[in-house]
Design a protein around this nucleic acid. Structure first.
Lengths: 150, 150
DNA sequence: TTATAAATGTTATGTTATAACGTATCCATA
DNA sequence: TATGGATACGTTATAACATAACATTTATAA
C-alpha cells in the first residue's frame, strides 16, 4: 500500500470515528492535494482535478470540501495566499502544535513544521505585553526552496 | 504642529530627496491611513476617503498609490488581509528590521514591532536547514486587542 | 418506507485586483 | 516659450476570487 492510500484510509477511518463521511468528492479533493504535492487555491485545485483526474467538479463544492477538510484538521489553509495544503502531520494521532509554513514563492512547495513551543510562548507573552491575545496562531514565511534557486 | 503634519512633512522631504513627489492624491491616501489609524484595504480606503474627506478617488489610483507608498517604505502591506497600514517607524531614519504585526481581528488595530534579531536569525537558519531561503520576511499574527475583549 | 439531515448541484452575484489605454501635468532642454 | 518625454492619474473593462441562496440528490435512521 502506497502512502496515499495509507492517508486516505486513515482519513476515512477518522471521519467514521467522528461520525463524518469521506465522500467520493471529498476523497477526490484530498487525492488531488496529495497528488499535486503543493499548495493549491480553490480554482487551481479545480483545474488540477479536471486536468489530472478528468472528474467533474465545481468551485462551490471545492470550497465546501476544503472547509470540511480544514475543520477536520486534514488540511491547512495558508492565509497569505488562500491556498490549501495537506497537513504534513496528518498521520500523527496526537495534537499538533502551532504550525509554521515555509512557502516557496516559485513552485509553491510547502514545508510545515511545529514552532518551537518555547519560542511560541515568547511570542505570546510579548503579544500580551502589547495588549494582544493571540488566536489561531499560524506563521507563514515566504522564501525560495533550494530546487528553485539557480 | 501635530503629529500628522510632522509625518506628512517628513514624507514630503524624503520623497523630494529621492526624486519622487508626494502629490496631492498621495498625500490624501497617506492622510486617510493616518486618520483611520488602522489597517484598510484599497476599497475600505476608498470608502473612508470619500466619507471623511469628500474627495473623489478611484480604486485604480489607490492601488497605484499604495504600491508607491509601500515601495518608499512609508506603509506596510499586510499580506494576510491585503490591507495597508502606515509604518509605525516611519519617522525613524535608520533601517527598520523585520516587522512583526499583531492584528486585532475585531477592530483591525495594528501593533507593529521589530522581531528580535536573534529570533530572526534562528528562524532563518532553521529555514536554511529545511532547504529554504527566506525572502521579504514579515510575520503577521492574529489576535484580539485588550479593548475588544469583553 | 418515509421523514430527516447531510452533501452536492446550480445560478447568480458580491468582492477584490489588475490590464489596457487615454489624458493631463510637470519639468528639462532646445 | 515651445516641445517632447516622463510621470501621475482617469476611465473602462475584465480577470480572479469567494460566497449567497435555493434546488436536488443521497444516505440513514425511525
Amino acid at each position: 500500500m502506497n502512502e496515499f492510500n495509507t492517508i486516505i484510509d486513515f482519513v476515512e477511518k477518522h471521519c467514521k470515528a467522528r461520525g463524518k463521511k469521506l465522500t467520493p468528492k471529498r476523497k477526490l479533493v484530498l487525492q488531488t492535494l496529495l497528488h499535486a504535492n503543493k499548495a493549491l487555491s480553490a480554482y487551481e485545485l479545480l483545474d488540477y482535478c479536471q486536468t489530472h483526474f478528468k472528474q467533474p467538479m465545481q468551485v462551490m463544492t471545492i470550497y465546501r470540501i476544503l472547509e470540511f477538510l480544514e475543520q477536520e484538521h486534514f488540511v491547512h489553509k495558508l492565509k497569505v495566499s488562500n491556498q490549501y495544503v495537506v497537513c504534513s502531520h496528518i498521520l500523527c494521532e496526537d495534537e499538533h502544535g502551532t504550525p509554521q509554513f515555509l512557502i516557496c514563492e516559485k513552485c509553491n512547495k510547502i514545508n510545515e513544521q511545529i514552532i518551537d513551543p518555547q519560542m511560541m510562548t515568547g511570542l505570546q507573552s510579548n503579544a500580551q505585553q502589547e495588549g494582544f491575545t493571540v488566536v489561531n496562531p499560524q506563521i507563514e514565511i515566504n522564501g525560495i526552496c533550494d530546487q528553485c534557486v539557480e
